[in-house]
């Protein structure tokens, strides 16, 4: 098969959904794995509020339940990214990508700040709207080619999926992966407990890289 990601190293069959590993997807998978382990191991940062004039420094405490919830979401996000990196089925990829989207909402939404929650809500709206092109494109791939498996689609000499359908798929992934926009604005500078927000940016980056491979392969 002519794959953009290099020669296929291994197959892992789950019924109709066959996971295939190429050097490209393996690299992305390891990246997601390393960052998930870092999230499990790391302690949340504490933010300092310095009041000028009053000569006062306040350490913002992150509540234990909030920290545990956000760590859970960050780990789930890491697992979802790993799945999205390896899966060899278009619809399964769409599902993993929307899982990344909803866990990103969870990471940001747990913060007790009106501003951050507003950003999380706006991001959630975009992620929810993003499922429309994502699932629509996957269904159109099935209808126009008769299969959802990327391995089968890659066997064709020329690309059988129409260009506009590919654009629809990329648009859906863009909607799900828009978190860093919000994370950068709402989270890094205003909310305590920074390490988990790395997962937002990293997972978005990874699903963007993967969707390019998917679009070039099918």
């Amino acid at each position: 098969m002519s794959s953009v990601g290099g020669a296929t190293l291994a197959h892992l069959p789950f019924g109709d959904i066959v996971i295939y590993i190429t050097p490209f997807t393996l690299t992305l998978f390891l990246l997601a794995l390393v960052f998930t382990i870092l999230v499990i191991a790391s302690r949340p940062e504490r933010q300092l509020d310095i009041t000028f004039g009053a000569d006062r420094i306040i350490t913002k405490e992150t509540g234990l339940t909030e920290m545990r919830f956000r760590r859970f979401m960050a780990i789930a996000c890491g697992l979802a990214s790993m799945g999205a990196m390896l899966t060899g089925d278009v619809f399964d990829f769409a599902l993993f990508t929307s899982l990344v989207g909803i866990t990103n909402v969870g990471i940001v939404a747990a913060v007790k700040s009106r501003h951050v929650q507003n950003a999380a809500f706006q991001y959630g709206l975009v992620a929810m709207a993003g499922t429309v092109p994502l699932f629509g494109a996957a269904a159109m791939v099935a209808a126009t080619t008769g299969t959802l498996s990327m391995l089968e689609l890659a066997k064709e000499a020329t690309s059988v999926v129409p260009f506009a359908v590919k654009a629809f798929l990329v648009l859906g992934v863009m909607g799900e992966g828009m978190a860093p926009f919000y994370a950068a604005k709402a989270e890094m500078f205003r909310a305590p407990g920074a390490p988990y927000v790395i997962m937002c940016s990293l997972s978005s980056l990874l699903i963007f890289l993967r969707v390019i491979e998917v679009v070039l392969t099918v």
Binding site: F14, L95, I102
Partner: peptide
Amino acid sequence: YNTRGLDTVVESTILFIAFGIAAFL
């Protein structure tokens, strides 16, 4: 459950995560 079982696993995980967010809030 059988031939496309992984889809259902991911789908129920999405529901589980969304439910977790709603329950936490």
